[in-house]
Every structure is written in structure tokens, then in C-alpha cells.
Write a protein that binds this DNA or RNA. Structure first.
Length: 499
DNA sequence: CGTTTTTGACCCGCGC
DNA sequence: GCGCGGGTCAAAAACG
């Protein structure tokens, strides 16, 4: 994990330098233009023509001056930010080397060459694939690397594998922890049979016994993730294809509840319910249930990752009421529970309904900025989530938000607040986000700084800043000037391209 | 004409 | 056992 992030951070800083260099050259060119007053011009045939020419050139001069000032200012700002990033990077690097040295002391198996090379001692695999045993994943790892994307249709799993090169000989030593394998939502046999997941039938077929696994699986099957977001459209655009199969008027809500089934694959068991909030009609409540048994588009993956991770967290963390309380407390940033580092979902709540444990991601409420000050408080945004919630309706900027929240959930699980077995996790979604969005790199670097060195404060706050800014800046900042990349990555609205 | 939506009927679990 | 409510089915209608 750390290695990849370090690489990304390095690349990012390099690119940022390059971009700023480009802009400086541009500025110099701009500055070296011969002043209009010195250029001289041929006499116009008529006085009026000459006058208009002069006034036009004067206007151009003013505009150019203004632009120069603007760009210079912006460049200064960007330089400062870059300096800050480099600073972060350096501290991250030093903390990482410290960590490596610590690891060295613990695992003498690791070869010195591995340790000397920052990029080699650990192999990180971010993959999106079917949930399977550690061994299976080990075997598939190489194949996945070749394919780039794993689309073998066995359902999606979100897994971060952190392998130490030194322990190649024994796969059992690999601390592989799996999050949310989406398959865990469903009985594999059931999926193989193509049975479309009727909850009532599951009840029938699963004879109650005392096996914890069975009961847990039963809970997993019923896990639901409810998303509240302001949305004008009848349904949220979550990247998946849905077919409506029913509609009901539910008690206590004048708005009908619509039932949708995923139609990407014929036997996909995933369903969702969509209903407008009775109190506030502008709020759309979408409840997801089940696991996709097919590859997903990037945007859909983001959503699936987010919801499944949330559901898994719910299932693993809410097995007992105290654990549920702890999880809920962790999610809400309530102190007094023994989870030292919290990652936040956007205002999640866990329902008390025992048969259908539901985690609710409320994207309609502003986040509490005070949370950022907690040990590793990484709130999705410090600027309120209404914009976030609204953006679920369109595709721009959504996937990264989802990836962010996925990361938080993953990290939250990794910290093992509720269940140590549901530990380190990341997704290909995150990998995509990292490569697609430079802001995520820096944010991640800052986060890792906290993660690796137990640091806190600035980095976490900055991640919140980046994310909030990235959410506002949007995809529109990617176009136009050579600064677009950096501006976007740092979350600035594009001042030049915006004209 | 194939796909999606609509909508009344039906099934099932749960509480009384 | 009965009624209620949530969820699903499937035929008909609508749509592209």
C-alpha cells in the first residue's frame, strides 16, 4: 500500500513541477512580449482608423497585464501548495523509511535489497474480483496483473492485499484481509444456480442452527445500504442498469416505493428500492440490497463499492448491539468508544431493525467540520454535503466521491474498530481514482502520512480540504490551460479556462 | 418487435 | 385464523 502511494505521490509531485514549469515559461513568454508602445506601427491611412487601432491595442495591453497578474498570483498560490505537498511527501517518505526499518526488525526474512528499494519491499494489489479464499486470490493475482481488470464475472470483491516480499515462501503469513466481498452478500451456490434471491425463500431454505457462520451469512444477505440524497430525477444515476418490477404505496408515505432489479446480467440478484422522503420530497431514498454477480462499469463500481463496503461494515460491525453502537459511534465521531481512528461515512446511521440491518448514508446533511479535528478524522467534505448529494444525479465527480468514501470505509475497517477480521481493504475503484484524479493522490499521501506514522492533524485536515475542493471544482476544471491539471488536482476552480 | 413500465393479483411473514 | 403490510409476479400497456 505505502509503496504504491509513495510512487503516486512522487509522480504527482513530478507532474506538478512540470506543470508549474510550463506555466512559468508561458508567463515568461507573456512578459517578454514587446510592449505595444515600443512596437511601433505604420501610420493608418486615416486618423480614425489609427485611433481605433491604438485603443484596441491599449485594451489588449490592459487585458494582457491583468491576465499576467492573475496568472502570477495563481502560480504563487500553486507553488505554495506544491511546496506543502512536497513537504508532506518528504515527511511521508521519512515515516515510511522508519516503518520499513521497524518491519525489518520484526521480519528478518526480508532481504536487504528489498528494503533498500522503496518500491519493492511490499507488493500491493488493488483488485476488483470475485471474493474467494486467500489462496485463490493469491493464485489469481498474477493473472489479474496481466489482465489489468478482472472481469471474470464471479461477482465483485473489494480487497487490498498487502504482501511482504519477504514472506513469499508462506502464503499463510500474508496478512490478507478482505473487505466486503460483494459475494459475501450472497450465497455462492445460490448465485451459481442463478436463483434470483427471494428473501422469503432464503428463510425457508436456511434451517436455523447454531452455526454462527450461517447466521452471519443470513445477516449479510439481508444487509441493506440506504442512500439519502437530494435528487430531482426519479432515480439516482448510479451507473447501473435497472428495470422496474413493482411499485407500492407504503404506509406512512404518500409517495410510492418503486422496486428495481439490476438488468446488467440476467441473474443478477441486486435490487433497489427508491422512494421519496415523506418529510422532504426533494430527498430521494435509495436502498440497495444484494451483490452484483457481473462486472460493473467504473461509475457503477464506485457505487457498488461504496454500498457494499458500507454493508459489510454494517454486517461485521453490527453483529452485536454493542458493536453496532461502537460502529455507529465511530461513524458519527462520538467519543468514548475504543476506536482510536475514525473514518467517516457521510452521516451514516444504522437501523435497529434486526431482520434487515440497514446502514444509511445521508448525503443531505452537512458534515460536521469539527470531526476533522479528531485523531484521524477524515470527513468527506468540510463544505457541506448538499453539493455532494446533488452530484449523485450526474456522473461528474461522483465516482471519486464514492471512491473516497470507499477508502474511508476500508480504512475504517482496517483499523479494526469493530471487527479485526474485516481489515485492510481497498478497491480498484480507489486505484482508478488515484490514477484519474491527482488530488486523490495527494490526499492519499497525506492520509498515509497519518496512517504510517501515526501522525495526525494537518494531513487529515488537508485531505478534507482537498476533497471538499475537488467536489466543488468538478470535472470542468480539467480542460483548458496547462494549469488545468494542477488546478483541478488542487481543487481550484479554473479561473482562466472559465472565461 | 423487443424491451420496459404499469398495475392488480398473489404470496408470505408478522402481530394480534 | 385473520388482517395488514411489504415484496414479487406477470399480463397488459407503453415505448423506442
Amino acid at each position: 500500500m505505502e509503496v504504491v502511494m509513495m510512487r503516486k505521490a512522487e509522480e504527482f509531485i513530478f507532474e506538478a513541477h512540470e506543470e508549474i514549469g510550463k506555466d512559468e515559461k508561458w508567463l515568461l513568454q507573456l512578459g517578454n512580449r514587446t510592449p505595444i508602445a515600443e512596437r511601433g506601427f505604420t501610420r493608418s491611412p486615416s486618423l480614425t482608423e489609427r485611433e481605433s487601432s491604438i485603443s484596441m491595442q491599449a485594451q489588449r495591453l490592459e487585458a494582457t497585464k491583468a491576465e499576467m497578474g492573475e496568472v502570477r498570483e495563481e502560480n504563487e498560490r500553486l507553488k505554495m501548495l506544491l511546496a506543502r505537498i512536497v513537504e508532506d511527501y518528504k515527511s511521508l517518505q521519512s515515516q515510511f523509511s522508519n516503518l520499513i526499518q521497524q518491519e525489518r526488525g520484526k521480519t528478518p526474512v526480508a532481504s536487504p535489497t528489498d528494503i533498500n528499494d522503496f518500491h519493492e519491499p511490499e507488493l500491493v494489489s488493488l483488485r476488483l474480483g470475485p471474493s474467494s479464499s486467500t489462496h485463490e486470490r493469491e493464485e489469481k493475482l498474477s493473472a489479474n496483473k496481466k489482465r489489468g481488470e478482472d472481469h471474470d464475472g464471479g461477482g465483485l470483491s473489494l480487497a487490498l492485499e498487502r504482501k511482504f516480499e519477504g514472506s513469499r515462501n508462506g502464503t499463510n503469513e500474508v496478512p490478507t484481509l478482505n473487505l466486503s466481498s460483494e459475494n459475501s452478500f450472497e450465497d455462492t451456490k445460490e448465485q451459481e444456480a442463478g436463483e434470483p434471491w427471494p428473501p422469503s425463500k432464503i428463510h425457508k431454505n436456511n434451517v436455523r442452527n447454531d452455526d454462527d457462520e450461517v447466521s452471519q451469512q443470513l445477516q449479510v444477505k439481508k444487509a441493506r445500504v440506504s442512500v439519502r440524497a437530494r435528487c430531482d430525477t426519479p432515480t439516482m444515476n448510479d451507473g447501473c442498469q435497472w428495470r422496474k418490477y413493482g411499485q407500492k404505496i407504503s404506509k406512512g408515505n404518500p409517495c410510492p416505493r418503486a422496486y428495481y432489479r439490476c438488468t446488467v446480467a440476467p441473474a443478477c440478484p441486486v435490487r433497489k428500492q427508491v422512494q421519496r422522503c415523506a418529510e422532504d420530497m426533494s430527498i430521494l431514498i435509495t436502498t440497495y440490497e444484494g451483490t452484483h454477480n457481473h462486472p460493473l462499469a467504473a461509475s457503477a463500481t464506485a457505487m457498488a463499492s461504496t454500498t457494499s463496503a458500507a454493508a459489510t461494515m454494517l454486517v461485521h460491525g453490527a453483529a452485536t448491539s454493542s458493536a453496532a453502537a461502537s460502529a455507529a459511534a465511530a461513524l458519527h465521531g462520538v467519543s468514548g468508544y475504543p476506536s482510536p481512528r475514525h473514518f467517516y461515512l457521510p452521516n451514516p446511521t444504522i437501523s435497529s431493525n434486526p431482520s434487515y440491518p440497514t446502514i444509511t448514508l445521508d448525503l443531505t446533511q452537512p458534515f460536521d467540520s469539527a470531526r476533522v479535528s479528531s485523531p484521524l478524522g477524515l470527513a468527506l467534505s468540510g463544505k457541506g454535503s448538499n453539493a455532494l448529494g446533488a452530484s449523485w444525479g450526474n456522473n461528474s465527480g461522483y465516482s471519486n466521491q464514492a471512491a473516497y468514501s470507499t477508502l474511508y470505509q476500508s480504512s475504517y475497517l482496517h483499523r479494526g474498530a469493530a471487527n479485526p477480521s474485516a481489515g485492510a481493504a481497498a478497491t480498484e475503484t480507489i486505484a482508478r481514482a488515484i490514477t484519474a484524479d491527482p488530488s486523490f493522490r495527494s490526499a492519499l499521501a497525506a492520509a498515509i502520512t497519518s496512517y504510517v506514522g501515526g501522525g495526525e492533524g494537518g494531513a487529515a485536515v488537508r485531505l478534507g480540504e482537498y476533497m471538499g475542493a475537488a467536489g466543488e471544482g468538478g470535472a470542468g476544471a480539467q480542460n483548458g490551460s496547462s494549469l488545468g491539471f494542477l488546478r483541478h488536482s488542487l481543487g481550484f476552480p479554473s479561473s482562466r479556462s472559465g472565461k
